[in-house]
Design a protein around this nucleic acid. Structure first.
Lengths: 137, 137
DNA sequence: AAATGTTGTGCAATCGGGTTGCAAAGTCAA
DNA sequence: TTGACTTTGCAACCCGATTGCACAACATTT
């Protein structure tokens, strides 16, 4: 099997079943974040709930992160190798309103915000909507 | 009928039906953003699709704005009087993961982000999750 | 290898938010 | 009052997410 894939699974302590290898392969190939329904379409016959649980496992083990891009379905993208999904690892996402793809802007961290007194920070979801490079030309 | 409510409707060119007055009243009373299902519960017998379309109308006329807070349902809050829902009017939202309420942080504008070349900005959704003041004490 | 426990998978069903079609009721102007 | 337009209520539907259950795959112990 593909070395990179098995390495990534091992790195995050995920047992490398056939299903998981396939799913991770699709996730890695896909340049933009992908939703469960989209993932389903990539497979001829895989079961929805299996895919669902595979994504959940990946997410728990911090192999992937979820983006709430407001399209009505959560989208997932592979984390950087040493991401622990903590505040410092958070980045901005971009949803193209034309092609409906969601990009990870890995280089753009979510800006720190000074919250009102008494409010404490746990997590953040920052999605910018607009037109992506491809659709702009 | 309540003067404030009718004024707000008139200001945004919305015909003041009984239903709309009631819905706006609830929205104004409610300190945090409210979802369609939550709104439904505030009424004994109002119809879901009527409420749905009322919210849509309010949103189109920029009386309210929607927040995608990742709870699975859109939440709505009344805009400031002269909000036109343009980038300059965007503010950060805060979702308390304990009481599940979504606050408008009116005073905290969504920070400007320098997008990668070729990407253009249209809109943004920035939700911070954590514990709110009430739940922290 | 057989027996046992644990984990993963497939199928079917359910839940819940959002949305739509349609007909009846209400509004308004001529 | 008539006719055009808008709003409302009801029922149905769509679709993403989630769960229960049984069986399969795998690992572990004897």
């Amino acid at each position: 099997m593909n070395k990179e894939i098995d390495d990534k699974l091992k790195l995050k302590n995920i047992k490398p079943t056939a299903m998981r290898q396939l799913v991770l392969e699709v996730l890695l190939q896909h340049k933009t974040a992908i939703s469960l329904p989209e993932l389903e379409q990539k497979f001829e016959k895989a079961d929805k709930s299996t895919l669902y649980r595979t994504l959940k496992t990946f997410q728990e083990k911090q192999l992937i992160h979820a983006v709430e891009d407001g399209t009505g379905s959560l989208r997932y993208a592979v984390c950087d190798d040493f991401c622990t999904c903590e505040p410092k690892d958070l980045h901005v996402h971009f949803l193209c309103i034309k092609c409906n793809k969601t990009y990870c802007l890995h280089d753009i961290p979510v800006p720190e915000i000074e919250l009102p007194e008494g409010f404490t920070f746990e997590n953040a979801n920052f999605v910018i909507k607009g037109i992506c490079k491809k659709c702009n030309f």
